[in-house]
């Protein structure tokens, strides 16, 4: 949360805007006119620490910690409503992705359950070439919701009993090819 005291310039990070600006999808954020179309259209903005519009003003003002610590980025469901409506055509969803990656990179993931889900998703895809929903949920529950595990049972059972939850993963045949591609990306470095 914003500190309830006068904010001194020295506490702000004025390079933050440039840092975000250079991220893919970040180019247009300097042009934001703070009209609020994004927040007014977002299905989840009401539960966010800061609605998307405010995230942009925080970035511009240099409130680095507030942005990366906020739950905003993890509440984005990638519905792209903001992106198609933004009068400045800012790719807001892409900026949210970029902020998610930056937050993960800087370890600002404490208590962020979405990070656990995403990271396990990546692991599974790298392992099998495909997602395995059963294993994904099991890993996620163990790592993030162990004490709430029981709440996943009814829906899990429903899926299983209807034959919608396969027990075994499907591994693609040419997993080596996929891994070679991923290894090359690793060498090239992220964008």
């Amino acid at each position: 949360m914003l500190k309830k005291e006068i904010v001194y310039e020295s506490t702000l990070d004025h390079d933050f805007l440039e840092e975000i600006y250079s991220l893919p999808g970040g180019h247009e954020i300097k042009k934001c006119i703070q009209c609020g179309t994004c927040s007014g259209s977002c299905p989840t903005s009401h539960v966010m620490d800061h609605a998307p519009r405010k995230i942009f003003s925080l970035i511009r003002a240099g409130f680095r910690e507030e942005v990366l610590d906020s739950n905003t980025i993890w509440f984005c469901s990638s519905c792209y409503t903001c992106s198609v409506r933004c009068p400045k055509e800012i790719k807001i969803t892409d900026v949210m992705y970029a902020l998610k990656r930056l937050a993960i990179k800087e370890g600002k993931t404490k208590g962020k359950k979405a990070v656990v889900l995403s990271k396990n998703f990546v692991k599974l895809v790298n392992k099998y070439g495909r997602n395995h929903e059963t294993e994904l949920m099991t890993r996620y529950i163990i790592q993030a919701e162990l004490f709430n595990a029981f709440k996943f049972i009814p829906q899990g059972w429903k899926l299983f009993s209807k034959g919608r939850l396969p027990l075994f993963p499907h591994k693609i045949k040419n997993i080596d090819q996929l891994r070679k591609i991923l290894k090359k990306v690793d060498e090239l470095g992220e964008i």
């Binding site: 893919p24 990656r101 979405a114 889900l117 995403s118 990546v122 895809v125 090359k184 990306v185 964008i191």
Partner: peptide, 25 residues
């Protein structure tokens, strides 16, 4: 034949170029 996961929204949240790469395969 032998398609792999598109990456969905989750992969993009962690790695961008990799996400595009698996999708591009």
């Amino acid at each position: 034949e032998d398609w792999n996961c598109c990456g969905a929204t989750a992969y993009m949240s962690v790695k961008e170029l990799m996400s595009f790469a698996i999708s591009a395969r």
